[in-house]
Write a protein that binds this DNA or RNA. Structure first.
Lengths: 119, 119
DNA sequence: GTAATACTGAACCATATGGTTTCTTATACA
DNA sequence: TGTATAAGAAACCATATGGTTCAGTATTAC
């Protein structure tokens, strides 16, 4: 179906889940093992493993295994590209309404003109 | 399964699709009917209607129907909450690495001390 | 009045998602 | 050496997602 032409799909997708957002926030406090995370979010190890893999795939976290425990930590990139997209969209959005504003200004000016002419 | 406790789930979900991001960008240029959008994105009317409904549900666009055509336009809210989440996460993230930085600084200082003592 | 247009709803389809259980493997610990 | 622990792989399950086709309704155009 949708092949991920766009990496944004994957990373916004990663964000669209409360558990995964929670994991990111927890990892910002301290590194954690998969068991730790599974425990925090009341979920099986296997279930948490999947979330961790997703976050790792999009590069938001990294993991290393030493002995039998795999430790998860925040990845090198935050949401740079994603924030950039949001920001540029917000500018487009603002521009759109600025344009509307200037139309309204214009109309208002014309209106005042006609008011003046009436007098 | 996941009931949307969190509105962020829905709006990040809305963002996690290239077509919907495209629709938002197109609407930032000019209002458009559902047919227009379906045409731009090479999709059936029905398919596009679904995307439009999703975007409307999360409040990113509004639509009004006059006669037989429904016109879509940007909604009143941009991605305020979403941008806010991203930003506060980015701060957490930065803080995490600042902390690491200061640990490194400290280690470096200690190292230089021991170097000095060796001499 | 008839035909074309624009949308809407329902049913359907394939694949994705978020979770589970069950079984294996590797490591740590007594 | 034997047992508990941490993780991983595989199969499975229910529901969600992104799309389609097909049929119906309302509106516009000729």
């Amino acid at each position: 179906m949708v092949q991920y032409y766009n990496r944004l799909d994957a990373s916004f997708g990663a964000l669209a889940d409360a558990t995964r957002r929670g994991v990111l926030v927890q990892l910002a406090q301290a590194d954690a093992s998969i068991s730790d995370l599974a425990n925090t979010f009341r979920m099986t190890l296997t279930g948490m493993k999947k979330h961790v893999s997703i976050l790792e795939d999009v590069g938001l976290i990294t993991t290393t295994k030493v002995g039998r425990v795999r430790t998860c930590r925040l990845g090198a990139r935050a949401f740079d590209d994603e924030a950039k997209w949001l920001e540029s969209y917000r500018q487009l959005w603002a521009a759109r309404f600025d344009a509307l504003d200037s139309v309204l200004e214009e109309l208002k000016a014309k209106d005042q003109n006609s008011e003046r002419q009436k007098r």
